[in-house]
Design a protein around this nucleic acid. Structure first.
Lengths: 339, 339
DNA sequence: GTGAAAGCGCTAACAG
DNA sequence: CTGTTAGCGCTTTCAC
């Protein structure tokens, strides 16, 4: 351990530069010299020192993933597992290292922020955000380091982001229910201070309007993207006698279905359901949920690719990428009953 | 952007050395000079360059978390969320950066391994392992970088690790069932090639032996730490008519309980249950599971602290830390029926 | 207390 | 094609 270019150069009887060229696969090295150097590298198990390389090249080949726990679903929502998976995968493929920053509270933020924004450590940052007024968002934008927001931010001028087309996805979901002939279509939404929630709600309304169906506030029940939340939201919704429900997440759909069954009703015969996410979760599988599939892993990978683009080709103009979704028909929507 | 020590020094009318001392909070700087320098640093928003600091100090203040997906529960098991949370938290507190390596397949491994083991990038590594014959384990040990295994490894000579006392935990679980007077106590285990599984199984057997109860192979049913797996394992176990079951994870317990109910039996009146983990999961909450609580977040934090100890004080002798668990009594064990 | 100077290990002109 | 040289930005002796 502790080998340097110098050591390899000496052993191979060449100069540092030549070894450097070989290490970096550059041309302009005679084949037999290259072979000789490679042999020494092999034999010694030499690896170039990352810090030195970073310093001289002004590139760390590291990107940061910042997850504020205002997005406090980190614990519970497998969304983050898949997002992280996608990001990690893309980092691997592009030979980037992934630095992971989980920011819980204000104190964390103060301690961690300098590391995040310190030059030299990170080539760029992916921020998983979407919460209204996230203070991290402004600080990161101000810190002037290449930045990609995973999820459309509230103030999007000049910032690059990637998002799923939640509005269209919601329209697709509700259209599916409308197409099956259901009249009173309810929604179980997330917290309204959340941009994803707002988009899906917009889509829900848009689909109803397109179909000339009435919008009833009472048919929208606010959940919190947890199973419990879905259960209670459904309990509040039940008196409105919805014939079908669009739940803004599969997890909430499961909770809502439980509430329906506890009330002595059947799914989909009495209340039909469509969810959102389609992450392969153990606890959901048996429900045969009709749902909207988000390409979460792809989403993570694209975020990395966008960030690398920013790093290599400059941050202007800001990049945008909106990803599509897919309707997955299973049994809770009652489509099979109609045939 | 692009400020260097030199710039600050010039603006403050001192030398680089002095600025460096101020930045690093060293003594031997006159108070008024310190103030002056700090003011310039404030005003300019200067941050020292991480790469340069790494290079000269030979310390990256970065640790790597390596998760092989042989441990392919990453997707589905919230255990990793909590472990990661604990690790991230401890990194924050100690001013370390966390680099995250998710290694899926052989190809990933080949691509990523050089980055993991390259000197300069990482001060040390936490490996989440426990799978029999994990090739990463040997490579990492050989790479001679400070290493902590999260979970007791199969070959433990000379390597530092942290683990939960799974044997005692399982004894505690089964003793609880025995104490409630149950006779035929079954187990739903994980895959046998897994060291955690083996330990819990050993504990299960030990408790029965201590109580002079017979060991029946047929009462141990192999699951895979998923809900489905628990369901099917229970279906196979049901003909043995167990009066109580120790499931090696809460998720499997939930699947098993479903199987019991689908068979027209009641929990805990016909079959009592105790699980393992006690991670706060949405989909489990309503079951009121009696279980063994693992301190997963603590576990992650301790792993980081152990690694930092290794980095700072040398890797010899190897460190060991075995953490205790807690019995959480709720309703599935039937304890309340006995009163 | 403070500054000058050396050097961490590497890359990238620039000569030859 | 290959070697020499000059830094990247910082920490750290060592003088003063």
């Amino acid at each position: 351990m502790g080998l340097t270019l110098e050591d390899i150069a000496r052993q191979a009887g060449v100069s540092r530069s030549t070894v450097s060229r070989v290490v970096n696969g550059q041309p302009n090295v005679k084949e037999n010299v290259r072979k000789r150097v490679q042999k020494v590298i092999q034999a010694t198990g030499y690896h170039p020192n990352a810090a030195a390389r970073m310093l001289v090249s002004q590139r760390s080949w590291t990107i940061g993933l910042v997850i504020p726990r205002t997005v406090n679903y980190f614990f519970r929502d497998p969304f983050f597992n898949y997002l992280t998976e996608g990001i990690a995968q893309a980092c691997n493929q592009n030979n980037y290292t992934l630095a992971f920053f989980l920011i819980g509270n204000k104190e964390d933020e103060e301690k961690t922020f300098p590391r995040v924004s310190r030059r030299g450590l990170l080539d760029g940052i992916i921020l998983q955000s979407g919460q209204l007024g996230d203070p991290l968002f402004d600080r990161l934008v101000a810190s002037n380091i290449p930045l990609v927001i995973a999820g459309r931010p509230f103030h999007a001028e000049g910032v690059s982001y990637i998002d799923v087309d939640n509005v269209s996805a919601a329209v697709m979901a509700v259209n599916h229910l409308i197409g099956l002939g259901y009249q009173r279509i309810g929604a179980i939404s997330g917290p309204f201070n959340n941009i994803v929630t707002q988009d899906r709600r917009d889509g829900y309304i848009k689909a109803l309007v397109n179909a000339n169906m009435p919008i009833e506030e009472a048919l929208i029940s606010e959940g919190d993207y947890t199973e419990q939340g879905g259960y209670h939201a459904m309990q509040r919704l039940l008196p409105q006698k919805p014939r079908a429900v669009f739940a803004f997440s599969d997890v909430m759909a499961v909770g809502a279905i439980r509430a329906v069954r506890d009330a002595g009703l059947r799914v989909p015969e009495d209340v039909a359901f469509i969810g959102f996410d389609d992450l392969p979760m153990d606890s959901i599988q048996s429900y045969q949920l009709t749902t909207i599939r988000q390409p979460v892993i792809q989403f993570g990978m694209k975020a990395v690719e966008m960030l690398i683009d920013l790093v290599q080709n400059g941050e202007k103009p800001a990049r945008r990428l909106i990803m599509g979704t897919e309707l997955i028909i299973r049994s809770t929507c009652g489509a099979s009953l109609k045939k």
